[in-house]
Design a protein around this nucleic acid. Structure first.
Lengths: 203, 203
DNA sequence: GTGCACCGAACGATCGTTCGGTCGGACGCG
DNA sequence: CGCGTCCGACCGAACGATCGTTCGGTGCAC
């Protein structure tokens, strides 16, 4: 973390000597991925454009040739996270069937999306609402959570549905705090969350 | 959020005109509370010393008369959070009895500490490890989590204890994302978490 | 020759922190 | 009591550093 960044070698086009023509350009998506990873490691505000450009392998001014600014990178990353989450609600399993089955489907798919879109969802879940972009993303996220809350209310009307839904979302979302791809297979993770959420620690 | 901060009137000594003597000095604890609240609202890096001093009701230079710097405020707040959490482990109910009872005691008390020390614990749970202070706090926090993980392994050896412990901590810690004092009584919150953690959503 | 990827240098703004100074109440002393 | 001194709370102004962003220019590929 002192200098010579980019501890993981991914998402870095092959321009080892600036020779050999264009050689795979920096796409917006690849730079957003680099940015999302850096934002998660140090936090959005603590990550400078110098950090990002160094992680991408070019200078700060060159970096601005590909992206319009810091906040645009954040918005693109949040967009990707929200698209993944709302995509779940558009699936047949989320709208058809008994409420408990729909809830179960959403929870399991949400675990999968969290795992596959980890850097982007992590950013979404750590927002503060400082800028208009962040407030917009937070509003969409609340929309998603409320859909789940209504389902929880249908499944369990005896306990406080609001509190139960918050705890459910908290359990699922807490994956971003520790899950890293590769260690635990996603399918295994889905089963673990499903069991703990619906059956609890005491069977 | 544009200007004229301090939306909540607490923690502000009565020096309405600078007249009338000393009139309750700014204690370190009261300034740490102000700082912790501000850090949580905007994030540590996005909160300037100007923000903090304005929230305290004095100028930035006066603020430095009472505190040694920004990072010292963070450390004091993290200290308070960690003291609260490790205090739980020192209680008799955390070390005596069957593992399941000890786990239950810790979980219930942890909910109470999270609720009462909300701003400080929130800060602790959102660290990035950018500075030495943050890394020290994260190390202590891992220590606390591992104690719980060992207990979970004693209670449930059939499921992956590591994953189960992470999900348990995630569920409890997710309180900081939505719980605000006053809305839901702490006792009620304790019962809701206990039931959901140990019995699950399906009874 | 035209255009695009890239770069160094600099912009104004804002950051955390420091410094010199003002003001008023507390206090020692005759 | 009156008075000189002191000290802590407070402030405006400025420090160097770093931030996000812009600009003019260079060089290679086509």
């Amino acid at each position: 973390m002192t200098s010579d960044e980019r501890s993981d070698g991914s998402a870095r086009p092959g321009r080892a000597g600036r020779r050999s023509g264009h050689a795979e350009p920096y796409t917006l998506a690849s730079l957003v991925e680099v940015a999302a990873r850096a934002f998660n490691e140090r936090g959005y505000d603590a990550t400078s454009m110098e950090d990002l450009s160094r992680a991408a392998g070019i200078t700060k001014s060159s970096f601005y040739h590909h992206v319009s600014g810091k906040e645009a990178l954040l918005r693109a990353a949040l967009d990707r996270a929200l698209d993944g989450l709302f995509g779940i609600l558009a699936e047949p399993g989320a709208s058809a069937g008994a409420p408990v089955d729909r809830l179960r489907h959403i929870v399991r798919r949400q675990v999968e999306v969290l795992a596959t879109e980890l850097p982007y969802v992590t950013l979404l879940l750590r927002l503060h609402g400082n800028t208009e972009t962040e407030r917009w993303a937070l509003a969409r996220r609340r929309e998603f959570d409320q859909t789940i809350a209504r389902l929880v209310a249908d499944v369990r009307s005896d306990v406080d549905p609001v509190v139960a839904a918050r705890l459910l979302s908290g359990t699922v979302n807490s994956l971003i705090e520790w899950y890293r791809p590769g260690r635990v297979p996603v399918a295994e993770l889905v089963e673990a969350v499903d069991r703990q959420v619906f059956e609890g620690l005491l069977r």
